[in-house]
Design a protein around this nucleic acid. Structure first.
Length: 780
DNA sequence: TAGCAACCACTAACA
DNA sequence: GTGGTTGCTA
């Protein structure tokens, strides 16, 4: 079953609390004192500060089981919210395991979004929707916005719809509707965003659709405007639990606060040190403020770590200690000392990849004086996805099996989205966005012209596109191949639509039929690009995924649940993923490459968010190190090719924050050694002491003055892109630049230390030169 | 309408 | 450098 299930939730208490109440509670035995306290403190607000690897999920699930077993709560009285389907599923499974029966009786365990879908379907009419509303993904959203932008006569070259989408998403994260938008926001998107936002919301209602942000927002506004409904849910949800509380945004926070205001039995679990989603709207402030929001809250710290060795924990603590405004936590462990964190510098990115490849092989063979590790035990965690390429290249060369975690989500792949659009159109013919997506996929000779005609006809008659197309054909407004093909498509859709009600044909057969008869499968069979076989494979997987559902509608609702198609992979593989994707995972052996200022911490993050950005990056470093159980290796390169340009790199400031006693500096044969700050090419002789402040070090100054020797084997145009922030002359007319507030733009005037810049998104502004960074290689 | 050259942007990613 | 989109031409 699924989290979007509409089965009657409130009566669905299949687990009898009373029947279990008398049982002893052996599940409490395996807990440490803090975990136990967290499990047993059921009444009142609780903040469970759970450090990395401290048995958070165990505590959470045991808490649920305890509430049920002790008779304090019935399954349908517990609201348990997670961020990802994966987390929800895991919690469900573990609760089920502990209870010795499936946890199907917990109707309100799910993601914020899935629970909101459920709530919104019940009360859709209150916000002008029908309960059959469709949920748009970001692709649909963008297409819709593009139409509005064009209709408003805005030059979408200068004002890309994508930017507007970003603005609107942001507002929704902050729970700002068109009606309560702060005046300070009015200037966004050339001052046109507020009006477009209003239009967009109106259009969504017309389409009987919501985007992801709306799921939260609509429910919040229903709660805010209908006291009776809010009160009802406050009564029903006697106990609330929230996982990853540090990742909540304002809308989610409001939602929770409204619901918890009744019984005040809310337990938030999280770790302020692992808040790494600020750019997605997450507010660390939510967790920092918890005690103020919920007076009398019990704060329970889980600090005993069951994952990593003391050296690794000490290194992680050393890094995170640099952050201000933490709630404060000190991880400790009873584990044996183990290996120190290993640190190594390389000449360039390729060498780094080569070295890690060799190291991985050595670890596999157990030739590092350590036990032999399986490839499945090892992971490479990078800051940005483009760093992955170097490792993929290297591993392909040496035949090392690897898997990339993350990448485009299954359902975001083109072929899956196309197929889904067909299914959507069959189950709800009025779905214009789906229609637009597939009218000419595969090619049916229906280009822009033909599609415009359909649009016009539909709009003139006030009917969905599919009807417009039908009318257009009837009045012979279309000729040639296009007309014939369109006719076939419409016939097909009709036929498939009728079959959805046919009991003799399963939805799986129907899905196959749709893909075959529409010519979609054929399109990929005829495609000679290397991706085609993979795409056909994905389509097969999609059809297979249908088996778990009763019908196409059910499947479409639940599509997001089929994603993690990681199963069925054969053989041992080393994992490559981003640090963000690694949150929540653990590996015996972890490699952390690319610890260089600008890359990690990322320049962009520092430019856009300043100190706050650095702190989030630091938390990311903390997350990275705490993924390691036994061996953690940090590395950096002195030179790196970024967007095709060679750059000299400084070791990350986070490297300087590693406590020396817990770090072993590995010296690559034949190269520079010693001190963390050794950058190879320009600091061979400099000691760590001399580089206590790297930004005043001779090496840094040399870099700045550009006298640093170029690596001999590299192209002549190699230069470093570190810009002297005070040298105005570094800038020239027409140069592409980046500003933390206004985004990208081009210089159109220079007056002293002020630059006149035409920004892509913010128009023409005069700004002080030191707030500007270059986007290209800037000579100086 | 389809194919290719030109142009642009470039941190991370959940539902 | 690279992938994705757009605009022009055959």
């Amino acid at each position: 079953m699924s989290t979007y299930d509409e089965s009657d939730a409130f009566e669905g208490a299949s687990l009898s609390a009373r029947a279990m109440a008398a049982r002893p509670s052996p599940y409490l035995d395996g807990l440490n004192p803090e975990q136990r306290k967290a499990v047993e403190t059921i009444e009142g607000p609780v903040l469970m500060l759970a450090g990395a690897g401290t048995g958070k999920t165990k505590a959470l699930t045991t808490r649920i089981v305890h509430m049920l077993n002790s008779g304090k709560a019935r399954p349908n009285e517990i609201l348990a919210v997670t961020f990802t389907n994966k987390a929800a599923r895991e919690m469900k499974n573990r609760v089920g395991q502990m209870l010795g029966q499936p946890a199907e009786g917990m109707p309100w365990l799910g993601t914020f979004h899935s629970i909101c879908v459920k709530l919104l379907r019940r009360h859709a009419e209150l916000v002008g929707l029908k309960s059959s509303f469709t949920i748009l993904d970001s692709d649909d959203q963008l297409r819709l916005l593009k139409q509005l932008v064009q209709a408003a006569g805005i030059d979408d070259k200068r004002w890309p719809a994508r930017a507007l989408a970003g603005v609107i998403d942001n507002w929704k994260n902050r729970a700002w509707t068109p009606d309560n938008l702060p005046a300070a926001e009015a200037g966004a998107y050339d001052g046109k965003a507020p009006a477009l936002y209003r239009q967009y919301q109106a259009r969504l209602i017309e389409l009987n659709a919501v985007d992801f942000g709306d799921l939260l927002l609509h429910v919040v506004s229903i709660f805010q405007t209908h006291d009776d409904i809010l009160a009802q849910y406050q009564r029903w949800f006697r106990f609330i639990m929230v996982d990853e509380y540090q990742d909540t945004n304002v809308a989610q926070y409001l939602w929770l606060r409204l619901l918890a205001a009744g019984h005040k039995n809310i337990c938030c679990v999280g770790d302020d040190d692992q808040s790494i989603y600020g750019w997605r709207g997450a507010e660390v402030g939510n967790i920092l403020r918890f005690e103020a929001d919920f007076p009398g809250a019990a704060v329970i710290r889980l600090e005993q770590n069951y994952r990593s060795t003391p050296h690794i924990l000490a290194a992680a603590s050393g890094i995170i200690a640099g952050n201000k405004g933490r709630l404060g936590k000190e991880l400790w462990t009873e584990a044996e000392e183990g290996e120190k964190v290993r640190l190594i510098g390389h000449w360039d990115g390729e060498e780094e990849a080569r070295w890690i490849g060799e190291e991985v092989e050595a670890m596999q063979g157990g030739t590092r004086g350590l036990r032999a590790f399986s490839l499945d035990d090892m992971a490479i965690l990078v800051r940005a996805s483009h760093q992955m390429r170097a490792f993929e290249d290297r591993f392909l060369t040496i035949g090392m099996p690897y898997r990339v975690i993350g990448g485009p989500r299954f359902y975001e792949r083109m072929e899956i989205r196309d197929a889904m659009a067909y299914f959507r159109l069959v189950t709800s013919p009025a779905d214009d966005l789906a229609f637009e997506r597939i009218v000419n996929t595969p090619k049916r000779g229906l280009g822009d012209k033909a599609q415009q005609k359909i649009q016009i006809t539909a709009r003139a008659n006030g009917v969905p596109l599919i009807e417009g197309a039908r009318l257009l054909l009837e009045e012979k407004g279309l000729g040639g191949k296009g007309a014939v093909e369109l006719g076939k498509l419409l016939d097909g859709l009709d036929r498939w639509g009728r079959m959805t009600g046919d009991k003799d044909i399963s939805h799986i057969e129907l899905a196959e039929m749709i893909l075959d008869e529409s010519g979609y499968t054929e399109m990929w069979q005829n495609d000679k690009t290397p991706e085609a076989p993979g795409r056909l494979e994905n389509l097969k997987e999609l059809v297979k995924a249908l088996e778990q559902f009763e019908n196409l509608q059910g499947f479409l609702e639940h599509v997001s649940l089929i994603m993690d198609n990681e199963a069925g992979e054969d053989g041992e593989k080393i994992s490559i993923m981003t640090l963000h994707a690694a949150k929540g995972l653990e590996f015996p052996v972890v490699f952390l490459p690319g610890w260089e200022d600008g890359l990690f911490p990322s320049q962009r993050s520092m430019d856009e968010s300043g100190q706050r950005g650095v702190e989030e990056e630091r938390r990311l470093a903390y997350v990275g190190v705490t993924r390691a159980e036994e061996v953690c290796t940090i590395s950096f390169a002195g030179n790196r090719r970024v967007y095709g340009q060679w750059q000299s790199q400084m070791p990350s400031r986070f490297i300087d924050e590693l406590p020396e006693d817990h770090v072993e500096v590995l010296t690559p044969p034949g190269l520079y050694g010693g001190g963390y700050g050794a950058v190879g090419m320009n600091s061979t002789i400099e000691t760590r002491a001399a580089e206590a402040n790297v930004y005043n070090s001779p090496g840094w100054r040399r870099l700045q003055s550009r006298s640093a020797e170029r690596p001999t084997h590299q192209p002549r145009e190699a230069s470093n892109t570190v810009i002297d922030l005070h040298a105005v002359s570094a800038h020239s007319m027409g140069e592409r630049v980046f500003h933390q507030k206004f985004g990208y733009g081009a210089i159109i005037g220079i007056e002293g230390d002020k630059l006149e810049i035409e920004f892509d998104k913010a128009g023409i502004k005069k700004v002080v030169a030191r707030f500007i960074t270059g986007t290209d290689d800037v000579p100086f």
